[in-house]
Design a protein around this nucleic acid. Structure first.
Lengths: 190, 190
DNA sequence: GTTTGCGTTCGAGCGCGCTCAAAGCCCTAG
DNA sequence: CTAGGGCTTTGAGCGCGCTCGAACGCAAAC
């Protein structure tokens, strides 16, 4: 089944260059400590978004933020935690609209938990679909890279050595590869 | 290492609901046959984009399309093949700008092949990064789903049975799970 | 002949998610 | 005292990738 090869591709995608999202993983888990309120720039640095965007999120009703004596924003632990959640969902491609709806559910109380879970589950499925799409695209691009020399350039072998990945790992994929005759399909002069 | 768990997540993402991108895989390989020129709506159906978008791509200089006696577009095999490539790249998130640059390289001749390969390789890395981001988001969302009941809802067990996936498969993940004490980090009332 | 239907061109509009400019307040350094 | 810098608010602008509307042309059907 071709899906197997997609899995392999996704795995390879994840294996590459060691700790790419280490700080992201920290963000995933390292917010358990006690915070005193943070200023907007601190939060912006923490979340790697701009102060503009933080103010925009607040205007959009996604989070409420207290002010100090000078009217400056003070982000307490609660607000920061929610913003971590929000930025994570944004990164995962959830539209602002959905986040706004989700937040209204949160503020409506416990009885909305089932609907919130529905949203999360649907979002999870969306992420899965997107990963699958990208794995497919990855397959296509890697195939294109590997075969580019066929009509207009050097041999595939030369190209393979130029890439920073091990050439062989297709123990099972080599058998189930169903291209062959259809090889020209992807090998145009682009 | 947490990356292992990300791999597992990506695998799960790909395993779900059987043939989600089967037709996409067909598009990947099934264009080897000889075409006679296609009308815009046929191409639109084939690529699952609108005729509007096809005209837009042409205006953007991404593809040249001949006309019949009535001025209607006739997409020959070459144009269709290029559009398959283009839509695949778009789906993978390559910006129009880059595609335009790439196409100018293609039309500039063979000597641009190295630069084209550079673009493809960079794009491949972009896709990998994006997959990793999404895998991380997926981890976060699934964790959130699994633990949602902790403060505001029913028990985790109940939630697990409500999900359309097998509960246990964490043979290795159960051991390497490094959360535990930091569990509250992600378990806010959202 | 006229209507229906699908295509054409050109340019404008839209939805999204920011991103920024203008005008003003407050605090601190020189 | 004044200048600078950073924050505030509001509303406007932007970049992207389409998406659509208006006005028109041709061709087959009635």
């Amino acid at each position: 089944m071709a899906t197997d090869e997609l899995m392999r591709k996704a795995l390879e995608a994840l294996r590459d260059d060691g700790p790419p999202s280490v700080e992201a993983i920290h963000r995933l888990t390292d917010l358990g400590g006690v915070h005193e309120p943070m200023m907007i720039n601190e939060v912006a640095d923490l979340l790697d978004i701009s102060p503009h965007t933080l103010r925009y999120y607040e205007r959009a009703g996604l989070v409420e933020v207290a002010r100090d004596g000078n009217g400056h924003r003070l982000y307490d632990a609660e607000a920061v935690r929610r913003l971590v959640f929000l930025t994570r969902m944004r990164l995962a491609g959830m539209p602002m609209r959905d986040l706004q709806h989700y937040i209204t559910l949160v503020e409506a109380g416990k009885h909305t938990v089932p609907e919130r879970l529905d949203m999360l589950i649907e979002h999870r499925d969306t992420i899965c679909r997107r990963i699958r799409e990208l794995a497919l695209s990855l397959t296509a691009v890697e195939y294109k890279i590997a075969t580019y020399g066929g009509w207009t350039g050097p041999d595939v072998q030369d190209l393979d050595t130029a890439l920073p990945r091990e050439p062989q790992r297709r123990t099972q994929a080599a058998g189930t590869d169903k291209r062959g005759a259809g090889e020209r399909a992807d090998g145009g002069p682009e």
